[in-house]
């Protein structure tokens, strides 16, 4: 267990491509931090630099009290879970889990005890003498987890560990990983492109875009107060509605009509509202034309046009809805304003 600190970390590939621009953040002891972003945003590169699988072009990385820029991956006291599990295909589950311990000169009895303990924790006991090729995807994932926990490292690194699993198994493993991390209290960095994983697992989320940090915050902060239109549209399913709006005389207008909120400044802005912060309101200020009703059981999503822009609204299962025109109101304290050009929150 340790705290991790990244100071002005940069990654520039030999071809001149800057995968990660100067990035700094600290991770507290025992914290579960999720790096999330679209593919090519630099999240995996960042993780691989922490692991030591990728050189750090600039900046300093410390794990615990130690600067580890030039320390071998094996000496960084980390364990990593890979996307495609990266199990050793020629070793049994027992040997896969124990391999890291064996190379650290752990006595054989100790290895046996720790492997058994990890196997018990992960329900792998019946499979210890099988080869990875005889296991299902979920079991392989557990072996990969076992290989990480058995070493009792200072830091867990997860590189999209669930993206090869089917949806049901993914939900289950998500909870298992989270519970395991809680129980062991090991500092963890988890990379994913799936915003649901990020929201559900993280103590803190770091949203990355094009090699830069867009926002760092708790899941609630990220969801309710996105720092930019990028975060607003990336986090949440369906994403936050973004409408072109105007700021005039201290008030916000969408498509003329009734003022929606008060704010300083003037000119073009982007107005953001989460789909669940919109409600049917016969006296409401806006016309919403529903095109499609998406039935999801617990709730419904209504997709359509508002002020000639795509718009989605979330209603509970008790609220009947059908295609056609309705009047809606927006929850005033849930409105977010962004600069129309830079996309930054105002």
């Amino acid at each position: 267990m340790a705290q991790v600190s990244l100071q002005n970390i940069r990654k520039i590939y030999p071809n001149g491509y800057e995968a990660v621009t100067s990035t700094s953040f600290d991770i507290a002891d025992g914290e579960f931090v999720v790096l999330v972003g679209p593919s090519g945003c630099g999240k995996s590169t960042l993780l691989r630099m922490v692991a030591g699988l990728e050189d750090i072009t600039e900046g300093s990385l410390s794990i615990g009290d130690r600067v580890v820029n030039d320390v071998d991956p094996a000496d960084r006291d980390i364990a990593m879970v890979f996307q495609n599990y990266a199990l050793y295909p020629h070793m049994t589950v027992r040997k896969n889990i124990g391999y890291g311990l064996k190379n650290r000169k752990t006595p054989a009895q100790e290895i046996e005890r720790k492997v058994d303990e990890a196997a018990k924790m992960l329900n792998l006991e019946p499979y210890l003498d099988r080869k990875p090729s005889q296991l299902s995807g979920g079991q392989r994932q557990r072996v990969a987890m076992g290989r990480a926990v058995v070493r009792d490292p200072a830091l867990f690194l997860f590189d999209e560990p669930l993206s090869n699993l089917d949806a049901k198994l993914r939900n289950q493993m998500r909870i298992e990983i989270k519970a395991l991390q809680r129980r062991l209290g090991v500092t963890s960095i988890y990379v994913t492109h799936d915003q649901v994983e990020a929201m559900t697992m993280a103590d803190r989320i770091i949203v990355l875009n094009e090699g830069r940090i867009e926002q760092i915050g708790t899941p609630a902060e990220i969801y309710h107060s996105p720092a930019s239109t990028f975060v607003a549209s990336f986090m949440g399913a369906p994403p936050m509605n973004l409408l072109e709006a105007r700021l005039e005389g201290g008030q916000v207008f969408v498509n003329g009509g009734t003022p929606l909120a008060n704010a300083q400044g003037r000119g073009a802005v982007t107005l953001g509202i989460r789909p669940e912060d919109v409600a049917f309101d016969p006296a409401g200020p806006l016309d919403f034309h529903i095109d499609i009703v998406e039935e999801l059981g617990a709730h419904r999503l209504l997709h359509g046009q508002l002020a000639a822009q795509n718009f989605t609204m979330h209603v509970s299962k008790e609220v009947a809805a059908a295609p056609g025109a309705v009047r809606v109101g927006l929850k005033a304290d849930a409105l977010r304003l962004f600069d129309a050009e830079t996309g930054k929150a105002l």
């Binding site: 699988l53 000496d75 990593m80 890979f82 890291g100 190379n103």
Partner: peptide
């Protein structure tokens, strides 16, 4: 990834 896993497991 298998080689990288080995890199972490064995110095």
């Amino acid at each position: 990834a298998v080689r990288e896993a080995a890199l972490i497991d064995n110095r």
